[in-house]
């Protein structure tokens, strides 16, 4: 047990050290979501107008961008095992007398921690996009980001433990990471989509993570009764928004007609994370 904790700690610590050292990775994981926020925010704001519950589009998108930044860093950190393998460092780790399980767990935990910190960097933007942050919100946000990051970092570790070269990396980003991110409601509300898309969105575990984070951000931003016919984009907004209802709930994911609460959302993510993490540890253990 002590051995295990030691292994987790060592690997986790190295991830943090690398995060501090490797500034370029930090910036790229920050730049892309920011770019999306600025470009999509400015581009779609006038087109879309306010969303259900009177939420401004940029305000709506901001929590999604925080989530995306976390997702991206977590996934990349998990996948960095492929780099470790390519540059040989993985052998140093695999041949050390430390349990493999500890290595996989440390890698996941380290990646998740780094991703959470990365997400926190974006919190400084909150006032700019009109989101009021309270200490309680931030205190709740950190564990949420960590759980989401753990799930996605596990996914990265799982994939990387089976990958023997960096070639497949671009392919996996395009085929796994981007669909998971884009179809999770990062950029658009998942309330009024065509049925086939709705299905994909509901199956995607990331959706629930993004939803929970957004609910937390927008909580308490109750707006006066809004008449759907006035000022709200008829295609994107307003569905199921009853006057006076809390804004986030108007945009929340529904499962079997039931709008998910934050806790339920996190339950889904945690469950997904637990399954993937177990698979990742198992898979990492099995490799030569």
């Amino acid at each position: 047990m002590m051995e295990m904790l030691r292994a987790i700690y060592i690997i986790w610590y190295r991830e943090l050290l690398r995060f501090v050292r490797e500034r370029s990775r930090m910036f790229s994981a920050l730049a892309m979501p920011l770019l999306f926020l600025v470009i999509f925010g400015a581009g779609f704001k006038n087109l879309v107008g306010n969303l259900a519950g009177g939420v401004d589009f940029v305000t709506f998108m901001y929590p999604g961008i925080v989530a995306m930044s976390v997702l991206m860093t977590a996934f990349m950190s998990g996948m960095s095992i492929v780099w470790d393998r390519e540059f040989g460092f993985l052998r140093e780790v695999l041949v050390a007398p430390i349990p493999r399980m500890g290595v996989a767990l440390g890698k996941t935990l380290g990646g998740a921690t780094v991703a959470m910190l990365q997400g926190c960097l974006l919190l400084f933007l909150a006032p700019v996009v009109g989101v009021a942050l309270t200490p309680i919100k931030v205190a709740l946000l950190l564990p949420m980001l960590l759980v989401v990051a753990l799930a996605i970092a596990s996914l990265g570790v799982l994939i990387a433990s089976r990958m023997r070269s960096m070639q497949a990396f671009q392919f996996l980003m395009t085929l796994v990471f981007f669909p998971m991110t884009f179809l999770s409601g990062v950029f658009f509300p998942v309330t009024n989509l065509p049925p086939w898309l709705m299905l994909v969105v509901r199956v995607n575990p990331v959706t629930y993570g993004v939803d929970a984070i957004r609910q937390l951000f927008l909580q308490g931003m109750t707006l006066p009764a809004v008449n759907p016919s006035l000022g709200i984009n008829p295609t994107l907004g307003a569905l199921g928004a009853s006057p006076g209802k809390d804004a986030p709930y108007a945009l929340a994911v529904t499962l079997f007609g039931h709008p998910m609460t934050m806790l339920q959302d996190m339950g889904v993510v945690a469950l997904f994370g637990a399954v993937v993490l177990s698979l990742a540890v198992w898979s990492f253990n099995r490799q030569d």
Partner: peptide, 13 residues
């Protein structure tokens, strides 16, 4: 103790 054919150091540390 092992000294590998290819480097196995962490370049960023």
């Amino acid at each position: 103790g092992l000294v590998f054919q290819d480097p196995s150091l962490d370049d960023y540390l």
